[in-house]
Amino acid sequence: MLKFENVTKRYAETGDVLRNVSFHLHHGELAFLTGHSGAGKSTLLKLIAVIERCNRGAIWLDGENLSAAKESQIPYLRRKMGFIYQDYKLLKDRTVFDNVALPLVIAGYGHQEISRRVRAALEKVGLSGKEKKYPMALSGGEQQRVGIARAVVNKPPLIIADEPTGNLDPELASEIMRLFESFQQVGVTVLIASHDISLISKMNHRVLKLDHGQLILG
C-alpha cells in the first residue's frame, strides 16, 4: 500500500533529515512512527502528503509514485489520504459541520451526500449533535475528533496522523488511539507519528523508529 524505497530528504539548511529510509506498510496495517524530537517523523509524513519531495529514492502509494507525481495530480493523491495534526488545523470561523464537509465539497459531492456523510463521520467519532458548534466552543479532545472526522469523511484508504494525542491527557489519548484502531479494523491503513512511548507500548502494533533520519526499527 505505502512503500518507501531508499528515501533521502535533504534540506539545504540542515543537511540530510532522512537517510535511506525503506519500509512497506500493508493494506489495513496500523503502525507507529517514533523517534526523538528532530528525528524526521514529520518530514517523513510531509513526503507522503507531497508537501515536500524527496531528493533520492521513491515513495509508492497503491502503485503510484508519489515522489514523481505531477503538480496537477497532487490534489487527487491527497484525496486518498486523511491527515490529522497535533494542532487540529480546523477553520475557526466555520462550524464543525463545515469543517468536516470541506473534503467532500472539494471533491464535488452533492448536498445530500455531503450532509449524510458528515453526520455519519461525526457519529463515528462521537460528536453527533455538535454540527453547529464552532471549534473554539469545543474541548481539545473534541476538536481533535473533529479533525479525525474530517480526515475520514472522504473514506480514504490511508490515514496519516502527526502527534494526534500530543495535546491531550492520557485518558483522551488512548480513547483517540482506540478510534484509530477501529478504522484499521475496517481495512484502513493507518500511520501515526508519536513519541508517547508508554502509550505505544501498551498497544500491540508495528513500530517504525527513526533515529537521526535513519530507520533503526521497522
Binding site: 493494506h27 489495513g28 475496517v186 481495512g187 484502513v188
Partner: peptide, 23 residues
C-alpha cells in the same frame, strides 16, 4: 488484505461500510 479498487463507484460501494455502515 483487501485491494482498494480505483474506480470510485465500486470504492464508494465497498468503503462506505467502513465508517458509516450504510453500504
Amino acid at each position: 488484505m483487501k485491494r482498494i479498487p480505483k474506480r470510485s463507484q465500486t470504492r464508494e460501494g465497498r468503503n462506505s461500510s467502513r465508517y458509516t455502515g450504510v453500504a
